[in-house]
C-alpha cells in the first residue's frame, strides 16, 4: 500500500514536471515558419539542380560542349549536344537537357567541368504530376536569363 502511494507520488510529480516544460514552451517564441505563406531564405550554398552559368560580359554560356559532364554523371541524366555553326570557331550548344528524376545532386558534373560552366540553382519548390515536368531544358533556362 505504502509503495503504491509513493509510486503514485513520484509518478505524478514526473508528469507535472513534464507539463511544466510544455507550459514553458507554450509561452516561448514560435519557431515554426508558416510555409508557404512565409519562406525562409535559403543559403547561397544550396545545391539545387544544375544550371548553366551566364557569362554576363559575353551574355552567353561558358560551356564548350565537351561532354565531360555527360560522361561522368553517375546517373546518366545529362544530354549535351554541340554543333559547329558556320563562321564560328567554337562549337555552340544546341541541346543541354537534364533529367532531374534521376539526378542525385552529387555535384560531379559541376566539379568535372573544365570551363566551370555549371552552377547549382536555388530551386527547391519542385513538385509536379508528370515525370516529363522534371526534364529540364537547361539551355532554355539560360536563354530566359539572358538580357
Amino acid at each position: 500500500m505504502k509503495q503504491y502511494f509513493s509510486e503514485l507520488y513520484t509518478g505524478g510529480k514526473s508528469l507535472v514536471e513534464g507539463l511544466g516544460v510544455t507550459m514553458k514552451a507554450l509561452f516561448s517564441p514560435i519557431v515554426t515558419v508558416q510555409y508557404p505563406r512565409e519562406e525562409i531564405d535559403i543559403t547561397p550554398n544550396y545545391r539545387g539542380h544544375i544550371d548553366l552559368i551566364l557569362d554576363t560580359g559575353k551574355n552567353t554560356y561558358l560551356c564548350i560542349s565537351c561532354g565531360m559532364c555527360e560522361k561522368s554523371c553517375p546517373s546518366d541524366c545529362i544530354k549535351v549536344k554541340g554543333k559547329k555553326m558556320e563562321g564560328e570557331k567554337k562549337k555552340s550548344l544546341v541541346l543541354f537537357d537534364l533529367d532531374f528524376t534521376k539526378c542525385s545532386l552529387c555535384g560531379t558534373c559541376v566539379e568535372v567541368c573544365p570551363k566551370d560552366a555549371l552552377e547549382y540553382s536555388q530551386e527547391y519548390n519542385l513538385a509536379a504530376f508528370t515525370k516529363e515536368a522534371f526534364h529540364f531544358d537547361i539551355l532554355k533556362r539560360l536563354e530566359e536569363r539572358r538580357i
Binding site: A25, T43, N45, R47, S104, L105, G107
Partner: peptide, 24 residues
C-alpha cells in the same frame, strides 16, 4: 523538441554541404 534541435544541425550542415539530408 527533438526536431527543433535537429533543425539547427540541419541548418548548419546545409550551409556547408548544400543539402539537408542526403549529403554528398
Amino acid at each position: 523538441y527533438g526536431f527543433d534541435d535537429r533543425e539547427h544541425i540541419l541548418d548548419i550542415l546545409e550551409r556547408i554541404t548544400g543539402s539537408r539530408l542526403t549529403y554528398c
